[in-house]
Design a protein around this nucleic acid. Structure first.
Length: 369
RNA sequence: GGAGAGUUGGCUGAGCGGUCAAAAGCAGCAGACUGUAAAUCUGCCGGGCCACGCCCUACGGAGGUUCGAAUCCUCCACUCUCCA
């Protein structure tokens, strides 16, 4: 109860406008949470991040467990104090690493044996240890330890994995103490499994429910088949979180399906790789056509990058591997995502989300032609 | 003046009779990235085509040997090193 509260402020179709209260502030939903895996949103100082003012960011259990280690984070006053961040923090449980680091882990019913990707040291992560680590780091929202299965597994394999995730969900919940805890629905691209998974997870006393196991290589239409099928089944009185998604278009479509929370490395990683989101479409800043472009990256953006430097300068920084390229690019991309979410919230609040979405998507398809 | 070494695609630099339109890196051009092992990765990169193949022009220049040459020989030009 006191860990977290969710208030549904209004709806527009399936889209929801809400508010999540955490020990580190109130979050307006739908929300996008920038990813800061190792207690750092790559490319930004905490001060720069504060200015962008996301209300919540992500950290990662597995990565922080390896370095600097939970003992140290705890000793230094928790993850907020450690990184000098006063907003909310949600941690991924390490479940995604079962997928992304599949080659260096071994899954058992009890938990997962990882060999550190850094030096090979063995680590053990289980529902209990994952929740304990997240709690000791002082996060606002912890995620249940789940298995995120790869795309392409058989129905039987995904079912087996999902059932273990369900058992792990109960164990995670039994370990919950001070941090809020979200459960995760699995089931791959199999809709019947998704239905069953929602039934299992929603029946438990989680503070929020997430859709996991998407954007793991499946085609986009299959992903939205899953999201559109699953989101309406999720309990309406708790936050709904679509894990690891996505592109700006995905966010708009996710909101339309009734999702409240998103996270994705896309704005930060793409920024470092010179791929920038603008109101006029995606831009590869390294492209020769920007070499002498004196204009702002996005004329409709008021972020520090867009109000300070030109496309020509950004290209120059990127082409020359200047660190400032990552900084400027990340500031803009994160800013773009946060602005998009703000616009989405406004549209829902004014009951104009449907036309907003249609306008957004048609603009997108125009750019692609 | 003498003795050596060298001249390869935008650059650096492999190749030393055929499997070479020529390794690799860089530069250049374009693309990908979805709970971050990613400031990463991929493709193209002499020219032209009715392009998973064909045709031109190509390894300083000009000749020559050979079925066949970037690879061997001759001459020329230029560069570098050492000795006078």
């Amino acid at each position: 109860m006191s860990r977290l509260s969710f208030k549904l402020l209004g709806t527009d179709g399936a889209a929801r406008r809400g508010e999540i209260t955490t020990p580190h502030g109130t979050i307006q939903t739908p929300v996008f949470m920038p990813v800061g895996t190792r207690a750092s949103v790559k490319g930004l100082t905490t001060e720069q991040l504060q200015r962008l003012a996301p209300e919540i960011i992500l950290n990662n259990t597995y990565h922080l467990m390896l370095r600097p280690g939970v003992d140290l984070v705890e000793q230094l006053g928790g993850v907020h104090k450690f990184m000098g961040w006063n907003g909310a923090v949600l941690t991924d449980s390490g479940g995604f690493q079962l997928y992304s680091l599949a080659s260096i882990r071994k899954i058992r019913e009890e938990g997962v044996e990882f060999r550190s990707h850094i030096d090979g040291t063995p680590y053990f992560l289980s529902p209990e240890t994952s929740v304990e680590i997240q709690t000791r780091m002082g996060v606002d929202i912890a995620m249940a330890f789940d298995e995120c299965p790869a795309y392409g597994l058989s129905h039987a394999e995904v079912e087996k994995s999902m059932e273990m995730t369900h058992r792990w969900a109960k164990r995670s919940l039994d370990s919950r103490t001070t941090s809020a805890l979200f459960g995760i629905v699995q089931g791959g691209v199999h809709l019947d499994l998704r239905t069953r998974s929602v039934e299992a997870i929603a029946a438990l006393d989680f503070d929020g429910v997430a859709i996991g196991g998407v954007s793991v290589g499946e085609p986009k239409d299959e992903m939205f088949e899953v999201v559109n099928h699953t989101a309406p089944l999720l309990p309406g009185d708790r936050p709904r979180y679509l894990m690891g998604v996505g592109t700006p278009e995905d966010l708009v479509n996710g909101v339309a399906a009734g999702i409240d929370m998103f996270d994705c490395v896309m704005p930060t990683r793409n920024a470092r790789n010179g791929s920038l989101f603008t109101s006029e479409g995606k831009i590869h800043i390294k492209n020769a056509r920007f070499a002498a472009d004196p204009g702002p990256l996005d004329p409709n953006c008021s972020c520090i990058t867009c109000t300070t430097v030109s496309r020509a300068y950004l290209r120059h920084l990127y082409v020359n591997d200047e660190i400032a390229a990552s900084v400027y690019n990340t500031i803009h991309n994160v800013s773009f995502y946060l602005d998009l979410m703000r616009a989405i919230r406004q549209a829902i609040a004014s009951n104009s989300f449907t036309p907003f979405r249609e306008g957004f998507l048609s603009r997108l398809s125009r750019e692609q032609t």
